[in-house]
Simulated assay, not measured.
Amino acid sequence: MIFLVLSIFQKNKKKLLLPTSVALAFLFFIIQSHFNSANSTADSIQPIPINEAIQPQESPIEFLEDNRIFVEVKGAVNMPGVYELAPEDRVLNAIELAGGYLPTSDSKGINHAQKVEDEMVIYVPIEGEEVESLLSSSGESSNLVNINTAEIALLTTLPGIGPAKAEAIIAYRNEQGIFKETADLMKVTGIGTKTFEKLESLITIK
């Protein structure tokens, strides 16, 4: 079979030479074009450098300072309660938020110009009520509660002292006599060392 093909090719090689050359040239052109196209595509794909990769943007975390101040107003005001004020506010602003004074109030011992402080308690006594000077003219808090004379309303302005403990303090005074020193307050049922530590700088016996 091979010899037959070769014999035919030898007899007609002049006629087949041109078509064969054209076919080979065309085939070479197609192969070359395909190869160049593949190289061009490969060159166009470039890797993204690591340092140029898109990094997610982190939103800055803002820490907002809480400047709110909460003050409790008690006693002879129209609306006793806890009120939110600004650091530059004064005692007068707290009294106004509480609806102002009752007709029976005694505000002579209150320094209305004093700046308020967080967790501050402003107690407004009624006329004739014996209360230590509540707010000093120097602007420093001097609202010491006299545990020998204060009644329930004033005693409950102290931290950790509710109506029940206030009644226990008054009952102790009636049964045992006045407190000879502030530390004697721990002799009252329900008032321990931790509670007294919170009260020590806020009370007096004179």
Rank of each mutant, 00 (worst) to 15 (best):
I69K: 11
I69E: 03
F70T: 14
F70E: 14
V71L: 05
V71E: 03
V71A: 07
E72C: 02
V73R: 09
K74A: 14
G75A: 08
G75H: 10
G75P: 05
A76Y: 11
A76D: 08
V77H: 08
V77N: 11
V77Y: 07
M79K: 15
M79V: 11
P80W: 06
P80N: 08
P80L: 07
P80M: 11
G81F: 07
G81T: 08
V82C: 03
V82Y: 03
V82D: 02
V82F: 04
Y83F: 15
Y83Q: 08
Y83E: 05
Y83T: 04
Y83M: 01
Y83I: 00
Y83V: 00
Y83P: 02
Y83A: 01
Y83H: 09
E84T: 13
E84G: 04
L85W: 03
L85A: 12
L85G: 10
L85N: 10
L85C: 09
A86R: 12
A86T: 10
P87Q: 05
P87L: 08
E88S: 13
E88W: 02
R90G: 00
V91H: 03
V91T: 15
V91A: 13
N93P: 00
N93L: 01
A94F: 01
A94E: 03
I95C: 04
E96R: 05
L97H: 07
A98Y: 06
G99R: 09
G99Q: 11
G99E: 13
